[in-house]
């Protein structure tokens, strides 16, 4: 009863005046206005976009039927999620079955080897859409983290020494614009030649994708880290000279913290590039992941394919967006430069 009364009040006839009062802006009111700006405006924009999409898509006739509108895409999203659940159910069922078989074998007094065989049997199902998302995320993060671990130290060293900068600069400039698709065949061949092991820890396909991501993620981080490091305020360097800080202390206490904002800018760029690169690499190399999903649907050419590809496109976009937001949050947390406008 209480809440009902309160809600009535909000939708009073007086709401227009309230809104005006809100605009006037003491702190709470300001926040409400902000909320309107940060929530209502984007929601309205998305609504308009969906409407235009729905209206426009109807008019595009393709070999696979009419271009799907938002409703159709949503339907496929639900279907894909359903398929995923069904697959997971099948998987649990499989393992339960194997468990039961092992149990039975044990009761029948079969040798341990036989029992283990049941227990160790892996379920081989089809990778669902959700699985593919997981694979892609894992791959991109692995490649990105590896790249960052290499790129940040290189960036620091290159940024601190003019000579090394001169030495590295041409290499960086030449490799930076190389398309991931050019790296892919090289990486594939090198990996299959170098990475030979009886019991591989990683799938080769995973390595290929991750390394291509790494190769493309290196450059923005190196460049931005180096710029950040070389741009450390001369006054701060002078402070470190007056204090006679050792090289290591200087690096850890002054150079590194001072370049954190730039390092994060590089990392954010890298992750963005890495994500795009990964999808392309997966499509081209048929490595598991979202890219492969898109390619498979493209080859499939069923009536639902277009809608499913669109689901994937939206998922790719959304995940890319979330990755970027995640980096931004990290950046805001770690960066001392609170005055910088981060968006």
């Amino acid at each position: 009863m209480e809440t009902a009364v309160v809600e009535r009040k909000v939708f009073d006839i007086d709401w227009y005046h309230r809104l005006l009062a809100l605009m006037e802006g003491d702190d709470l009111n300001k926040r409400v206005t902000q909320l309107i700006h940060s929530l209502i405006v984007p929601i309205a924009a998305i609504g308009i976009f969906l409407m235009l999409w729905g209206a426009g898509a109807k008019n595009v006739e393709t070999s696979l039927g009419v271009l799907p509108g938002p409703a159709k895409v949503w339907e496929q999203t639900v279907t894909l999620y359903g398929e995923h659940n069904a697959e997971k159910d099948k998987e649990t069922a499989f393992y339960e079955r194997m468990q039961a078989k092992a149990e039975k074998a044990r009761e029948a007094g079969k040798p341990q080897a036989k029992i283990d065989k049941y227990l160790n049997r892996k379920y081989v199902g089809t990778a669902t859409f959700v699985d593919q998302i997981g694979t892609s995320l894992l791959t991109v993060m692995s490649g990105f983290i590896l790249a960052s671990l290499i790129a940040i130290p290189i960036g620091i060293i290159v940024g601190m020494s003019n000579t090394l900068y001169q030495a590295f600069n041409p290499i960086i400039q030449i490799f930076k614009p190389v398309s991931p698709l050019a790296w892919l065949p090289l990486v594939t061949i090198v990996v299959s030649a170098v990475y030979v092991s009886e019991d591989p820890m990683f799938e080769k396909s995973f390595l290929n994708s991750a390394l291509v991501v790494t190769l493309c993620c290196l450059w923005p981080t190196i460049v931005n880290t180096a710029v950040g490091v070389s741009g450390v305020s001369k006054d701060l360097i002078n402070v470190s000279r007056v204090l006679k800080l050792s090289w290591l202390t200087k690096t850890m206490k002054i150079v590194l913290p001072s370049s954190v904002p730039m390092i994060f800018t590089g990392l954010r760029l890298s992750l963005g590039i890495g994500w795009m690169v990964l999808i392309a690499a997966e499509m081209l190399a048929q490595n598991p992941g979202l890219g492969k999903f898109v390619w498979d649907e493209f080859q499939n050419g069923s009536s639902n394919s277009l809608a499913r590809i669109m689901v994937a496109v939206l998922a790719i976009g959304f995940i890319g967006f979330m990755l970027d937001r995640g980096m931004l949050m990290l950046q805001k947390n770690f960066s001392w430069d609170k005055s910088a406008v981060l968006r």
């Binding site: 002078n238 402070v239 007056v242 001072s258």
Partner: peptide
């Protein structure tokens, strides 16, 4: 060479902004 026996106070304070 520079050293802490000759402390410098710079015009623009030169404090570490992250500390």
């Amino acid at each position: 060479e520079p050293g802490p026996d000759r402390a410098v106070i710079f015009q623009n304070h030169s404090l570490m902004p992250w500390l």
